[in-house]
Structures are given as structure tokens and as C-alpha cells.
């Protein structure tokens, strides 16, 4: 089944990272640092994934006065998103594996 958006290399990178710890909440700066994505790529991708229901965003529940900082926005894979992302990444890996021998064969012949 096709994804509701284009599965670019950046989207795959983000999904792989999120799947690495699918049950935890993640925030923008952490993902930027870990994946090397740029903010101009990350936030629109968040929006696409959220629109497709693959991830959900929520505001952190903290006591602002005690922590002396505002609440962060966290993102987490939904159950649906986790299943879909795993399947989509597997499909992509399969396709890439199928293409590889052809390219090598073409080069060697």
C-alpha cells in the first residue's frame, strides 16, 4: 500500500529514528541533533506525518513555575503510524535490494 505522502530519504531517516524508540516522546531539538536534519525539513515532515495520523504531538505537562521554562511540544509515533512506518520502510528496503543487483549487473556487463 502506498504512503499518503512521499517517502523521502529525510522522512525515512525521521521514521527510523522514531521507530528506534517508538514508545517514547521526542522533541524537535533532540531529533535535529540525532538525525542531522534541518529545521526546514523536520517541521514540515512532522506536519505531514501528523496529518496522516502516523505521529501525534502533545504539549509537555510540567509546572512552569517550578521548572522555570515553558512546556515543550513532544512527538510520538501512534500505533497506526508505527505499523505503517515499519511496513513502509520494509517495502522501501525490499525495493532498494531488488534494484541493487540490476545496477551491479548493468555495470559489470
Amino acid at each position: 500500500m502506498a504512503t499518503p505522502f512521499r517517502l523521502t530519504s529525510q522522512t525515512r531517516l525521521l521514521l527510523t529514528y522514531l521507530l528506534g524508540d517508538a514508545t517514547s516522546d521526542h522533541y524537535g531539538f533532540e531529533i535535529l541533533k540525532a538525525t542531522g536534519l534541518k529545521p526546514g525539513t523536520l517541521y514540515p515532515t512532522f506536519a505531514r506525518l501528523e496529518e496522516a495520523g502516523w505521529i501525534e504531538g502533545r504539549w509537555e505537562h510540567i509546572d512552569v513555575e517550578t521548572t522555570n521554562r515553558p512546556a515543550r511540544r513532544y512527538y510520538r509515533l501512534t500505533a497506526h503510524g508505527s505499523t505503517e512506518a515499519t511496513a513502509a520502510l520494509a517495502r522501501h528496503a525490499e525495493k532498494a535490494a531488488l534494484k541493487a543487483p540490476t545496477v551491479l549487473g548493468g555495470l559489470s556487463s
Binding site: P39, G40, Y43, P44, A47
Partner: peptide
């Protein structure tokens, strides 16, 4: 530095979000 990167990426963010 983070805020600077946000500004640099904001035109793309805006464009992609609008044309999505």
C-alpha cells in the same frame, strides 16, 4: 544557534506547509 537555524529553515517550512 537553534533560533538562527529556524530562521534559515523557515522559508522552506512556510513554503512546504502552504503547498502541502
Amino acid at each position: 544557534s537553534y533560533a538562527g537555524r529556524l530562521v534559515l529553515g523557515a522559508p522552506r517550512t512556510g513554503f512546504v506547509l502552504r503547498t502541502n
